[in-house]
Design a protein around this nucleic acid. Structure first.
Ligand SMILES: [Mn+2]
Ligand SMILES: [Mn+2]
Ligand SMILES: [Zn+2]
Ligand SMILES: [Zn+2]
Lengths: 161, 161
DNA sequence: ACTAACTTGAGAATTAATCTCACTTTTCCC
DNA sequence: GGGAAAAGTGAGATTAATTCTCAAGTTAGT
């Protein structure tokens, strides 16, 4: 449906080179492949997913380099790291969404939705204030079920949401 | 400061026996030790912590049994499981607090505070509704810093909070 | 081109959590 | 009280995401 325009991807790729240069990091084929793989994805992906995607671009990418590159991307704000309490993490290309987003995890289809949560920062601040602390970041996760599927049957993972 | 009264502990222990019986589970020394260890703790603890605490009560408790018992306690609502994104979980004796609690994690002293977060359920509902989902549970985590300690120096982990 | 510093791949290591299975313990019936 | 079946347990092996090690390959200035 809404795939990424090649021009956007190219532009992002330029940004990435600048990003690396600016941090004194070298531009390598592997890092570029990983970066491109990240921004090919519309949805959440795991490190292992990313290894596969990256290898479709550059066969030589290794698991170690994926795991080494992800922190660079997340700390640089290019990728969002999401931990919903499983024993592996999810990642998401950061295309400049709002910071006030919650994760709604459907218990029926396991899908994760990034949903705007207005005033979340303000709300978190009001909570943290109670112990004399100042928020640096906050996250809200909601585990939920389809309103429709009250009884048996799986969640319509497709267009339903 | 506010330690648990022996009578309360004994009462809880009775509740535990009923709890097990009612689920068709057997009352063993190990389970009892683990339960007592849990309710000796005021604060958050890890599975490994709990192993130590339990062994102080019954030397024979094994790691396997701690890990087997924790799900029984959490599913039974006696213990609250808390995942703040580290690679191990925390647990907390459930003494019947509000369900609307957020975790505020101090980045200076690593301490986790369970803080009341009024209207959190309502708020989560308003977010989940946007994708046609109905909340089953929700969690808000706030990473924060001491308002005072803007520059160097460690967080006064003691009475400060 | 030269080279120092950086980066990488393969596979070993780490570690929270789970699993296996021979051996106990608990329950429950007599 | 025994006795047996079912449930539970400990020790140690296993799993699996992630991190580490280090020899070999690359990058980016000179
Ligand atoms: Mn986790
Ligand atoms: Mn793990
Ligand atoms: Zn769904
Ligand atoms: Zn603190």
């Amino acid at each position: 449906m809404d795939s990424i325009k090649p021009e956007d991807r190219r532009k992002s790729s330029e940004t990435f080179k600048e990003f690396l240069a600016q941090k004194g990091l070298r531009v390598t084929n592997q890092r570029t492949a990983i970066f491109d793989a990240v921004f090919n994805q519309e949805d959440h992906f795991t490190a292992e997913d990313l290894l596969d995607f990256s290898r479709e671009i550059d066969r030589s990418v290794s698991r170690a380099t994926v795991y080494r590159t992800l922190p660079i991307l997340t700390e640089g704000g290019l990728v969002k790291e999401i931990d919903v309490g499983r024993d592996y993490k999810f990642y998401l290309a950061n295309r400049g969404q709002k910071t006030e987003q919650a994760q709604v995890i459907c218990l029926d289809c396991e899908k994760i939705f990034e949903i705007e949560a207005p005033f979340m920062e303000w709300y978190a601040r009001s909570v943290a204030q109670k112990v004399g602390l100042e928020p640096v970041s906050q996250r809200l996760q909601v585990h939920a079920r389809c309103i429709r599927l009250k009884e048996g049957g799986s969640c319509p993972n497709r267009e339903s949401h």
